[in-house]
């Protein structure tokens, strides 16, 4: 029986080896060699060059800010949704997934129309006599694009974690004398940590590595590390340098994973 089941594992084991593990090894190989195939750390050290370092720093800054904004927006929302039991809550969650069916490039591009000098938002602002927003093609627009695209990834895990909390556990805290604020910080927040962690990961990683949002909303003025890597592959055709920078990016993703894993452990 067991040996039969092990045979069943073969297709996926082979598939994941060929299409997941080997490709990652190839990035490592390209990242650690030069064009002649000799070992080098130059491609990784290249991150220290002014342009690359600045792009990386900008990526980290914008993705951290976006993650924080997503968290602050999503947490109250997830709490409100978690209060709605059953169908109603589930339906609202569907409304978060629904926009994904409209191509994300188009959705992001639509923000151009909304944010432009003579765009919809400025039209509304000037109608009320407010000063116009000049954020298109700036870092602010990129943050907005990140928050817009990745907010559902924060809401869904938070909603899952919060709606799993037994109502009686919250009642128990009140019963034992805790007021709303104490109940929140002593009980609700700690119990939602798994959701917070997966939400942060699911927002931070794509925000850190995006090149699309910066291309669409940042004009060509704001380069992120994702843009640099993308250009190395599609325009400069320097796969070794692109791979080296990708390794640096992966290191940051792994650091993020380790930090959140440690945080989770500490909470337990």
């Amino acid at each position: 029986m067991n040996s039969k089941k092990n045979i069943l594992a073969a297709p996926y084991a082979v598939w994941s080896a060929v299409f997941i593990v080997i490709p990652l090894c190839m990035i490592l190989y390209y990242g650690l060699t030069d064009k002649t195939g000799a070992f080098t750390l130059e491609n990784i050290a290249a991150i220290a060059s002014v342009g690359h370092a600045r792009a990386l720093w900008r990526s980290i800054l914008l993705s951290v800010i976006s993650t924080i904004i997503c968290f602050l927006l999503a947490y109250p929302l997830a709490m409100i949704l978690a209060e709605k039991k059953g169908r109603a809550g589930g339906f609202i969650i569907l409304l978060f997934i629904l926009p994904m069916w409209m191509n994300f490039l188009l959705r992001t591009l639509a923000w151009q129309t909304l944010l432009e000098k003579t765009g919809v938002i400025n039209g509304i602002l000037s109608f009320f006599g407010l000063p116009s927003l000049r954020i298109i093609n700036t870092s602010y627009a990129i943050v907005l694009g990140m928050v817009y695209n990745f907010l559902p990834f924060m809401v869904l895990p938070l909603y899952n974690a919060l709606s799993k909390i037994d109502e009686n556990v919250i009642n128990a805290a009140k019963d034992l004398g805790a007021n709303k604020i104490q109940t929140f910080f002593h009980v609700i927040l700690p119990l939602s940590v798994p959701g917070i962690i997966s939400g942060i990961t699911m927002v931070f990683v794509p925000a850190l590595t995006t090149f699309v949002i910066s291309t669409l909303l940042g004009g060509s003025k704001v380069l992120l590390i994702g843009n640099v890597i993308e250009q190395e592959f599609t325009q400069a055709s320097n796969w070794h340098l692109g791979s080296g920078l990708s390794i640096v990016l992966m290191i940051f993703i792994i650091i993020n994973m380790i930090v959140t894993a440690l945080f989770e452990k500490a909470e337990n």
Partner: peptide, 29 residues
């Protein structure tokens, strides 16, 4: 509100705080 009442409840299925030790659970109130 419940937090001001001089009553305490033992809930169905216990409703313990799973993120705290037993001592912390007891000490909560």
């Amino acid at each position: 509100p419940p937090n001001k009442r001089q009553l305490n409840t033992v809930f169905q299925k216990y409703a313990l705080f799973t993120h705290m030790t037993i001592a912390e659970n007891i000490a909560f109130g």
